[in-house]
């Protein structure tokens, strides 16, 4: 299997290296794998995730995502990479002035897909996340669980090769959490996307094989 994420002696830090978060870690994630990253609060889970979509640059070592060296990646290349990554945030990060439907197809708008394609894809995804009747509403008119389902639908809209999710069920009730996990499982199982999820708690019922990394004291350890 092709390696989608490859970290070698990776160090991540804030404030120009003064505050080291992840220290000298090495790991590999292959295409189609589902990975959970857990760890105590402030351990650097979200920081590691941010480095995977280029919001934080490696301080030392090597980090390769989808064939791009994240230490040397140029702005244009980074935007190109991000167009093929689906990201889900704990705080949803939806555009409140846009309708649910438009939010879902944001990655398609960015890539320049036609309105017809956007419409078809929005209908399909909103039906998957059980929000077909909410297409013309605005995010602030929805509950937290519904907003997160919109966020997941957006992340899936362009069939990304990599899905990154930061505490995707952190604020959700049981029903919405179940829908979100099902969607992420399906993306991995049926679309062969690599899924990396940062979470406090791995769901008790999970139907596909997964890997589990724990971040502690700046190190990343895999649980076997």
């Amino acid at each position: 299997m092709a390696s989608i994420i490859s970290a070698t002696n990776l160090t991540l830090a804030y404030e120009k290296g003064k505050h080291i978060i992840i220290n000298d870690v090495t790991f590999n994630i292959e295409q189609g794998e589902f990975v959970f990253i857990t760890g105590p609060s402030g351990s650097g889970k979200s920081t590691l995730l941010k480095s995977l979509y280029g919001q934080i640059k490696p301080r030392e070592g090597m980090l390769n995502v989808g064939g791009f060296d994240m230490s040397r990646i140029k702005k244009k290349q980074l935007l190109q990479l991000r167009r093929n990554i689906g990201i889900v945030f704990q705080d949803y990060k939806l555009i409140n002035e846009w309708t649910v439907e438009k939010n879902v197809v944001l990655p398609l708008i960015i890539t320049g897909y036609s309105l017809d394609v956007q419409k078809v894809q929005a209908e399909k995804l909103l039906s998957h996340v059980k929000l077909s009747d909410q297409a013309n509403k605005y995010p602030l008119e929805l509950s937290g669980g519904e907003q997160q389902r919109v966020g997941v639908a957006r992340a899936l809209s362009k069939n990304p090769f990599l899905i990154l999710a930061d505490e995707p069920t952190g604020n959700l009730d049981e029903f919405s959490s179940g829908v979100v996990w099902d969607l992420l499982e399906n993306a991995c199982d049926q679309l062969n996307a690599t899924v990396v999820v940062v979470t406090h708690k791995i769901p008790t019922i999970f139907n596909i094989p997964y890997r589990h990394f724990i971040i502690e004291n700046g190190g990343v350890h895999e649980v076997h």
Partner: peptide, 16 residues
């Protein structure tokens, strides 16, 4: 700001 930052996260160039 929020909209532009979200669009950037999903790879939108500055012009868009």
């Amino acid at each position: 700001k929020d909209r532009m930052k979200i669009m950037e996260i999903f790879g939108a160039p500055m012009m868009l």
